[in-house]
Amino acid sequence: MSVQPIDVLYTAVATAEHGRDGRVATDDGKLDVVVNPPKEMGGSGAGTNPEQLFAAGYSACFQSALGVVARREKKDISGSTVTARVGLGKDADGGFGLTVALVGSIPGLDRRAALELMEKAHRVCPYSRATEGNIEVTLDVA
């Protein structure tokens, strides 16, 4: 797969101090959080962690992509939500890898129609496109 150039409309800038056990802040001051490893990984769990931040960003982006697809197809997704579950674990090479499960709740659509819309949103969402072939991403509806 070749990398396609894009016309950048916005650039987010964040700086981390002390990695997974420190602080992350954006250059505009809108996000400034303490990060700590979760208790499941031997950390204090006192702050947020990179996987929670990734889940928040992915779910928000995917919900927007769902809206784009729904508008194109003139489908009502009022009251819908998208939940991202980001897993972190060891891979076969002894390093770490991520998994993502995206679960959509779309009250106005039956299961089949909701899944079809999720699949189309998956082809539109920038996060989905960025993770394609790198991270296992599953789609489901609640």
Rank of each mutant, 00 (worst) to 15 (best):
M1K: 07
S2Q: 10
V3M: 05
V3G: 07
D7M: 05
D7G: 05
D7R: 09
V8I: 15
V8Q: 11
Y10P: 06
T11P: 05
T11Q: 15
A12C: 13
A14G: 15
A14I: 02
E17V: 14
E17C: 06
H18I: 04
G19S: 09
R20L: 01
V24Q: 03
T26K: 00
D28R: 03
D28L: 05
G29Y: 05
G29H: 04
D32E: 00
D32F: 10
V33C: 00
V34C: 03
V35F: 00
P37W: 14
P38G: 12
K39E: 14
K39Y: 01
G42P: 04
G43Y: 06
S44N: 09
S44W: 01
S44E: 04
A46F: 05
P50D: 02
E51H: 07
E51Y: 01
A56W: 06
A60R: 08
C61A: 00
F62K: 05
A65C: 10
L66G: 09
G67Y: 08
A70Y: 06
R71I: 03
D76E: 08
I77W: 03
I77R: 04
S78C: 12
G79T: 07
G79M: 14
S80E: 04
T81F: 11
T81M: 06
T81H: 08
V82L: 07
V82M: 05
T83E: 15
A84G: 11
R85S: 11
G87D: 02
G89K: 05
K90R: 15
D91P: 01
A92M: 07
D93S: 15
G94T: 08
F96H: 07
G97F: 01
G97E: 12
V100T: 15
A101C: 11
A101W: 09
L102W: 06
G104F: 06
G104T: 11
S105Q: 11
I106R: 06
G108I: 00
G108A: 14
L109F: 14
R111V: 09
R112K: 15
A113M: 13
A113D: 15
A113W: 07
A113L: 12
A114T: 01
L115A: 02
L117F: 08
E119A: 11
K120H: 08
V124H: 02
C125Q: 04
P126T: 10
Y127M: 03
S128N: 06
T131C: 04
E132T: 08
V137S: 11
T138K: 13
T138A: 14
T138G: 13
A142K: 10
